[in-house]
């Protein structure tokens, strides 16, 4: 059964929610069932932010997750909060430029990626989330790079379309890291 339950967590402003929305959108374009549930309210404005995304072949029961198959983490507190949510053999991806802490579990698959550093080296710090999504695609196959590109065109306003080639470069760099 094709079922991916993903939690993405970090600070507000890191593109946590937009990464989740893009994955859900791409999943929809792949013809799957999808749901996206964001944290909301004061959390969004500088505090911690997280979202829960489900991409599945079956109708989705709950969009609110108590466990997940993959977890992307962009700050230390989020690792502490969500590590226990990961199922056995689940995929943990941390932005190692920001997350110094190590997971305590050894029954998961952990990948480190200095996404924020890679993004600022490449000239656009705002794309750090895209590198992490690239790694997620590589390790889980939740969506395809092609559907992600289509999702970018679907979600971003026309005035931002000129950025898409750069974002796809970031996605591929994340996949190949």
């Amino acid at each position: 059964m094709f079922l991916h339950e993903v939690i993405i967590a970090g600070f507000g402003g890191q593109g946590i929610l937009s990464a989740g929305r893009l994955i859900a959108y791409a999943g929809m374009l792949d013809g799957r069932e999808v749901s996206f549930f964001p944290s909301y309210g004061p959390e969004m404005r500088g505090g911690t932010a997280n979202c829960m995304v489900v991409v599945s072949d079956e109708p989705i029961a709950s969009p609110v997750l108590n466990s997940c198959t993959a977890l992307i983490v962009m700050n230390n507190p989020s690792l502490e909060k969500f590590e226990s949510y990961l199922k056995k053999d689940g995929v943990l991806i941390t932005d190692s430029s920001l997350v110094q802490q190590k997971p305590v579990r050894n029954d998961i698959r952990h990948f480190e990626l200095p996404a924020t550093l890679m993004a600022s080296d490449a000239g656009n710090k705002a794309f750090s989330n895209i590198y992490l999504v690239g790694k997620l695609i590589k390790e889980t196959g939740i969506i395809t790079p092609e559907s992600f590109e289509k999702a970018l065109y679907g979600v971003l306003s026309k005035s931002k379309h000129y950025l898409i080639p750069q974002e796809m470069e970031a996605l591929r760099a994340g996949m190949e890291y």
């Binding site: 999808v34 749901s35 996206f36 549930f37 969009p63």
Partner: peptide, 10 residues
């Protein structure tokens, strides 16, 4: 409720 209002689905 807040879940239904804030969540996205197809």
């Amino acid at each position: 409720d807040g879940v239904l209002g804030q969540m996205m689905e197809v």
